[in-house]
């Protein structure tokens, strides 16, 4: 059975921004999975015009994604564009929100779905075992992962200083075997997005907490011990950053003492600035190292491909 027609695809500003950031910082193309939820929304059209129909709209909200450089060995599809269900299952293991579809981001290409992307989308949207329930639906119905988000940068980009990222959203229709372009709503905070709060469902991802008790063999204990040591070390490092920020001192900021505490406060801010500066410097250094390694890897790759071709 074909999926019901989506009226809109919504994505939160930060999710879109982080997707684009992932794309623009990767050295080549990337692709990955899109997560979120599909909801029936009754639009709150509080207009005097009574002619507006009150038919519920179907809205897909993208709340998260999982990306990998493409093409890679960790992909959920093979080179002919067929989805490999077992590797897809493996990727979904730690995700509790439902799969809506996938995205592809490729550099310097026309913003049209490619032959390969068509095959992957067709294959993915046919897998009803990965479908998710539609929320607020009048009768229980499911939604197959049929959303495709395409990102591309223009082919002729002579201005190296301006980064253009185009994106399009599609719903794949199995009935017509075709892509249907959908408009994208970018959700930000503000009165214009009030309607979205109705369909808001928090799905923050907490790291899996280590509180299992079963299995008390020595080896596991050792493992746990080392993990605890690591956690203690991490905590100490964090505490170092917080020196001078003790909760007790904060109470001085209130009441009659506050006036005489200005000097102390300024001192606090100064320390904070120094720490931030140190932090940025170490981030900068580590990014430089990462870039260096990436370039080195690229050179090695080209060397391999050259030697393979000359064989």
């Amino acid at each position: 059975m074909d999926n019901p027609t989506l009226q809109k695809i919504a994505i939160s500003g930060p999710t879109l921004a982080s997707l684009i950031q992932r794309f623009s910082t990767s050295s080549s193309s990337i692709d990955g999975l899109l997560f979120g939820h599909v909801t029936h929304v009754t639009p709150l059209n509080l207009t005097d015009d009574s002619s507006t129909t009150d038919s519920p709209t179907l809205l897909a909200t993208v709340t998260g994604f999982l990306s990998s450089p493409s093409p890679s060995t960790t992909s959920f599809f093979d080179s002919s564009g067929t989805v490999n269900t077992s590797s897809l299952h493996r990727l979904l293991l730690h995700h509790n929100s439902s799969l809506l579809g996938w995205f592809s981001a490729r550099r310097k290409t026309p913003i049209r779905p490619s032959m390969h992307e068509f095959s992957v989308t067709a294959s993915l949207s046919s897998l009803s075992q990965f479908s998710s329930p539609i929320k607020n639906a009048t009768q229980p119905s499911n939604f197959n992962p049929c959303i495709f988000l395409l990102f591309a940068s223009p082919t002729s980009d002579h201005t190296a200083h301006i980064h253009t990222h185009e994106y399009r959203a599609y719903q794949f229709r199995r009935a017509g075997n075709s892509f249907e372009a959908k408009s994208i709503d970018i959700i930000n905070i503000g009165p214009a997005f009030r309607g979205h709060y109705g369909s808001f469902s928090p799905n923050s991802m907490f790291p899996a907490l280590d509180c299992e008790i079963e299995g008390s063999r020595m080896k596991e204990d050792e493992e746990r011990l080392s993990r605890m040591k690591q956690a203690a070390k991490d905590k100490k490092e964090l505490d170092d950053y917080a020196v001078g920020f003790e909760i007790g001192k904060l109470s001085k900021l209130m009441g009659s003492e506050a006036m005489s505490y200005t000097a102390g406060l300024e001192d606090l801010y100064e320390k904070m600035l120094v720490k931030i500066q140190n932090l940025t410097r170490s981030v900068e250094n580590s990014s430089a190292k990462v870039l260096e390694l990436e370039n080195h890897n690229r050179k090695l790759k080209h060397k391999i491909s050259r030697s393979a071709a000359s064989e």
Binding site: P71, H302, A308
Partner: peptide, 28 residues
Amino acid sequence: DIIYNADSPSTAPDFIFGPEDCDFHPFH
């Protein structure tokens, strides 16, 4: 448009057909 990836030579190229041929799906 024929899209190779210099980074992964072992993968087959991808094709993007003309904008007027958006219904052309050679394998479907």
